[in-house]
Design a protein around this nucleic acid. Structure first.
Length: 258
DNA sequence: CCGGATGTTCACCT
DNA sequence: GAGGTGAACATCCG
């Protein structure tokens, strides 16, 4: 369920994995290895070393080890587990999910481990991932950068917000929530936003993202509980509309989102 | 049984 | 080249 709030949680959790001697790596799930990574390579790179730093970039969690970086992506159902603990207050803990879905396990010599548990296997592990195509991170994008990311395109604004090469870290729920807060129709062409609307959207992205960080979860925003048939807008009571935009289900208020 | 799900990539159209 | 659509990935849920 990872969007930025979950990633920040994983980042904190992963700090517990730093400076511990790596004793072994289970990377036999070749499908989970991305970017040409082969089974066994991670073991070669990681064993007898330690993770020295962890940070986040967009939806990637990055663990520094020696001169390399282990990149973890969590897709839609991936979770990080360190020493049998997941992120606090996750709406439904993943610890009950079978270990059968552990796609990558890093064992430390003290008996603990770091693992990625991912049922749908839409996430992946990368060695030295190429992040050059990621746009500015939503947590610190400036309004000028946002304007540049949106300008001169007829793609819908919703689709544009999800394009990680333009703006990194926004997922489907945050995109809907921010557009709803800003009062912008998700189907509008990205390049058609006025300067004022770009400012509104910038502020909405900031507020929405920060609220999710405070909750520690992408779930639980104001729009989230009404994203269903017969759900109505918390602002004006209008029945919400939904449609697929850019391949993703999009909920919006037909009254105040223009 | 069918459709959909907090993501990304890729093939194939227009 | 740009942009849209749908499929694929694997599993669960309503």
């Amino acid at each position: 369920m990872p969007e930025i709030a979950e990633l920040e949680g994983y980042c904190l959790l992963a700090k517990d994995a730093l400076h511990r001697q790596i004793a072994g790596v289970d990377d036999k799930d070749a499908y989970f290895l991305k970017g040409g990574l082969l089974p066994g390579t991670l073991a070669e790179v990681l064993v007898h070393r330690t993770f020295t730093q962890v940070h986040r970039r967009g939806k990637f969690l990055l663990l520094e080890v020696g001169s390399h970086e282990l990149g973890l992506h969590f897709g839609m159902t991936g979770h990080l587990i360190v020493d049998r603990r997941d992120v606090a207050d996750f709406e439904s803990s993943v610890l009950h999910i079978s270990e059968d879905w552990d796609r990558l396990v890093v064992h430390f010599d003290d008996g603990g481990d770091l693992r990625v548990r991912d049922r749908r296997r839409l996430g992946g592990a990368y060695l030295d991932p190429d992040l050059s195509r990621l746009g500015p991170d939503v947590l610190d994008i400036t309004v000028q950068q946002l304007a540049a990311a949106l300008v001169a395109s007829r793609v819908s604004i919703k689709t544009r917000l999800l394009d990680q090469t333009r703006l990194a870290g926004v997922g489907n729920l945050i995109a809907d929530e921010a557009l709803w807060v800003a009062g912008i129709d998700p189907n509008r062409a990205s390049g058609s936003l006025t300067e004022e609307e770009v400012h509104l959207l910038h502020q909405a992205l900031r507020d929405t993202t920060r609220s999710s960080l405070e909750r520690g979860s992408t779930s639980g925003g104001r729009l989230d509980p009404v994203r269903h048939d017969r759900g109505s807008c918390p602002l004006d009571g209008q029945l919400l509309s939904h449609r697929r935009i850019g391949g993703r289900t999009t909920w919006f208020c037909p009254a105040h989102q223009r």
